[in-house]
């Protein structure tokens, strides 16, 4: 398990990462969500030790993470890069060797993964001749070579076609099934919702929400839509109700609690024909918007 405790990074007067605390439990996939400049990349770089925290600590297996621990973390940085003039297979073998694999096992594993990602016939191609999407596949493979004990992936899905996203997802699932914790950042909330066991929302350097997506939705404010054949202006005068949106015949409202919502329904039925009275379940995007604009 990876734990971040009060991790903080200051650039001059600017707090890029402000007292971030969360953990990535074994075998779990945690999505790291936040807008541009929220501090995701800075946090990931501190996890990998390529950036020193101003304060706080990164812990692995119950103690402060060491360089030796980090040497076994798989990392896909935001700034992608491989040697442009070296054939893709050769440099994956090299990176595998640096991670401690033998030449044979590095070659076998890299060939297997390249084939799996549809690059089986491009093993000898230099990186600069590969499309950006294919370079990204190479990058993903580079991060998982050498049996990593933890994976940190910065926007691993950006620029991938749906087939590659599926291949990548299946690969990550194999690692989580083997107990490897995975932390990845993404802007694609639907993807995060689909893949992650839990997520951490970062906004202006702070964790503004954390938990499973169900948790986050549950924490979201209660909202209902009421549709009636008759006039709905009477709702305005009800205590404990805030009107969020109104169109002729329907109103979106926010009650203070479930009891208030129930009372409102009783009132409504008494006043006319209720066509619809529904609890609005927020999407993750709604939740995200909610927590980051608060």
């Amino acid at each position: 398990m990876l734990e971040l405790r009060h991790l903080t990074r200051r650039y001059g007067d600017h707090l890029a990462v402000d007292d971030v605390t969360f953990s990535v439990p074994a075998g779990q996939m945690v999505g790291f969500v936040g807008g541009n400049g929220a501090g995701k990349t800075t946090t990931m770089r501190m996890i990998m030790g390529v950036l020193a925290p101003t304060s706080g600590e990164v812990r692995w297996a119950g103690r402060p993470a060491t360089a030796a621990d980090r040497a076994r973390f798989g990392y896909m940085p935001e700034e992608r890069g491989l040697y442009p003039k070296q054939p893709i297979l050769d440099q994956l073998v090299y990176l595998g060797r640096l991670r401690g694999l033998s030449t044979t096992s590095a070659r076998e594993r890299a060939t297997e993964l390249l084939t799996r990602f549809g690059l089986g016939d491009r093993l000898r191609a230099t990186v600069e001749t590969l499309s950006l999407g294919n370079q990204q596949r190479g990058q993903i493979i580079a991060s998982v070579l050498g049996d990593p004990v933890f994976l940190v992936l910065d926007e691993p899905f950006s620029g991938l076609d749906p087939a590659a996203v599926d291949a990548m997802t299946a690969l990550l699932r194999e690692y989580t099934a083997a107990g490897v914790p995975v932390l990845f950042s993404s802007h694609q909330l639907d993807l995060v919702d689909r893949l992650c066991d839990s997520l951490v929302v970062l906004h202006q350097g702070k964790v503004v929400a954390a938990g499973t997506s169900d948790d986050l939705r549950r924490d979201a404010p209660l909202r209902y839509r009421l549709a009636m054949a008759t006039d709905t202006t009477w709702v305005d005068e009800q205590p404990g109700i805030t009107i969020l949106q109104r169109t002729p015949g329907t109103v979106v409202l926010q009650p203070t609690d479930v009891a208030t919502a129930q009372r409102l329904l009783v009132d409504a039925v008494a006043r006319g024909t209720v066509q619809e009275y529904a609890r609005l379940v927020p999407t993750l995007a709604d939740v995200y918007r909610e927590v980051t604009t608060a």
Binding site: R45, M48, G49, V50, A67, R70, A71, F73, Y75, M76, P77, E79, R80, G81, L82, Y83, P84, L95, L98, R99, A142, S143
Partner: peptide, 17 residues
């Protein structure tokens, strides 16, 4: 400067001294 130019440096920096 090659690794900095090709941005491979972060991966290597985390991997080896």
């Amino acid at each position: 400067v090659e690794e900095k130019q090709s941005r491979l440096v972060e991966v290597l920096a985390a991997m080896i001294p």
